[in-house]
Structures are given as C-alpha cells and as structure tokens.
C-alpha cells in the first residue's frame, strides 16, 4: 500500500510538474499580452519534435536546451508577425488567431512527422529504475522533476532580480506607464511571449522522453493548465505554480481510490477554490 501511495504521489508530482511548466508559460503570456494562447500545447509538441530531429546530430543534452530555444524563436516570430496585430482588440480575435495557429502547427507536425507516435531516445544514464522496490523512480522521472525545478527557479529569479523581469512584472499591471518610462514595450511583449513558448518547448522535450511524441501530445495538458492558472489566481505566477502542483497531486491521489474520477477532481478543486476565493488562491496579489 505504501508503495502504491508513493507511486501515485510521485506520478502526481510528475504530472504536476508538466502542468506547472505549461501553465507558467501560458500565464506569462496571458498576463502581459492579454492573450489566451490556445496554440500553447502545439508549441509544446513542436519542441518535442525539434528535439527528435536534433538528437541524432547534437545528442540529447544539447537538444534539451536548443529545441526549446528554437521553439522560442519561432514563438517570437509568430508574436511579431501575427499575435501583436490583435492586441487591444476584442478577445474573439485572439481566440480565433491562436486556435488557427494551433491547427496549423498540429497539421504541420502531422504532415512532417506522421500521425503515429515517435519515440524520443533518452540517454541510458538517466533511464534506469533506481531500485527494484521503487520501480517507478526511474532516473528519468527524477531528472524531469529536477529540470522543472531548475527551470522554475530560473524563471522566478529572472523575474525578481533582473531589470527586464521587473519591467515585465510592472507591465502586467500598467504597461502604459512602463512605456512612458522609455521601455520598448512591444519588444518586451515579444520577448515575454518567447519566454512562455520556451517553457512549452522544454515541457515538450521532457514529455517526449517520457511518453513519446505525437502531434496531439500537448492537448491533454492545455485544459488542466488553464485550471492551474485559475486555481492559483490570474496575474500571480506563484499561484500558477501552486495551482499546477495542487491539481497534479490531487488527480494522482484520486487515482488510488477512484481512478475514473482523476480528471474530474481537477474541476472539483477549481469549483471549491473559486467558491472560497473567487480570484483564486493568490489572485489578489497581482491584480490589486
């Protein structure tokens, strides 16, 4: 039983880690651009596929960094050429645009790499189970958790300690004033968008190494990531972090008792949190 509980807890942690990566990127983009990026999960898949292409040439470790970077560059270009045109307009435009992008990227992946799943080879050094008893503790899964911790810590340090991070945080509440202080807020938004896409690309590589690649691999992460943002409170990245972990672990624990409710529990948590705190766990912090 202990083993089962630990197994599911750890599973929840892994799933939560993926929710967190995806939701943090979505949340950054939502906060500064006021755009819900429905193509986020497809950028995630793209990151995985880019790693698939790159690994034979440069190996896994460099690809772990280079594929998210390339995905981010693509995100930057998409923001500069398309997304920025709909800033300040009715939300319906961003919904249509990012939905359209989602289909384009998805079909593009399907066209290039096929509908069938592809494996992403990970180095043998991190693929072995660590012990017989705790078979689920493969090195790779620990590695995923480690990378996510490093990425999230780096993101928060960036936002907290660099001038650009401060400008992004200031811009979430008052972009006009940031602009009136001489900061190129168009570039700031593009770069912020690219950072969000970088996190999606990273999640894509990590997920690819665990469950393989397919053109729809990001879809299952998108909805829970929205829930994580709402549970955590819009405008607060710390809230998003907590929200992602909370629903990941809750879903996993529910699996032990009543497996078929493990997805539904996410929405139950959302409802309960919103009833108690309409702005989410840490919602007031950023928005006040």
């Amino acid at each position: 039983m202990l083993q089962l509980v630990l197994f599911n807890l750890f599973n929840g942690l892994i799933i939560g880690a993926f929710y967190v990566l995806t939701a943090l990127g979505l949340s950054m983009i939502l906060n500064l651009s006021n755009v819900i990026n429905f193509a986020h999960g497809n950028f995630l898949a793209l990151g995985g596929y880019l790693a698939y292409v790159l690994i034979p040439y440069i190996g896994f470790w460099p690809a772990l960094v280079v594929s998210p970077l390339l995905t981010a560059v693509l995100g930057f270009v998409v923001e500069r050429t398309m997304i920025r045109r709909i800033y300040g307009r009715d939300p319906i435009y961003s919904l249509l645009l990012t939905f359209g992008l989602a289909f384009m990227i998805q079909d593009g992946c399907r066209y290039i790499w096929g509908v069938n799943g592809l494996p992403l080879t990970t180095p043998a050094s991190i693929s072995q189970p660590l012990s017989q008893e705790f078979f689920f503790l493969t090195g790779y899964r620990l590695f995923v958790v480690g990378i996510v911790i490093v990425a999230v810590a780096a993101l928060f340090a960036f936002l907290r300690y660099t001038r650009m991070g401060m400008r992004i945080r200031a811009g979430v509440l008052d972009l006009d004033t940031v602009s009136a202080l001489g900061i190129n807020v168009r570039l700031l938004r593009s770069l912020n968008f690219a950072f969000g896409i970088f996190l999606a690309g990273l999640a894509g590589v990590l997920a690819g190494g665990q469950i393989g690649l397919n053109p729809n691999m990001g879809d299952d992460l998108l909805l829970p990531s929205f829930v994580a943002i709402i549970v955590g409170g819009m405008g607060s990245l710390v809230g998003t972090l907590l929200g992602g972990l909370l629903i990941g672990v809750a879903a996993a624990i529910t699996t032990i008792f009543y497996a078929s409710a493990s997805q539904a529990v996410i929405y139950v948590i959302m409802a309960v949190v919103l009833l108690a705190r309409p702005r989410g766990l840490l919602g007031e912090e950023g928005l006040q």
Binding site: M166, R169, L173, D174, Q288
Partner: peptide, 14 residues
C-alpha cells in the same frame, strides 16, 4: 507600480 518594491520601481525606467 504597487506590486513592486520602491527600489524595483526605480529600476523600471530606461
């Protein structure tokens, strides 16, 4: 900027 510290406010301008 209400969510930033005084010192952070001072680091926003160009």
């Amino acid at each position: 900027f209400p969510n930033l510290s005084v010192e952070e406010n001072l680091k926003v301008p160009l």
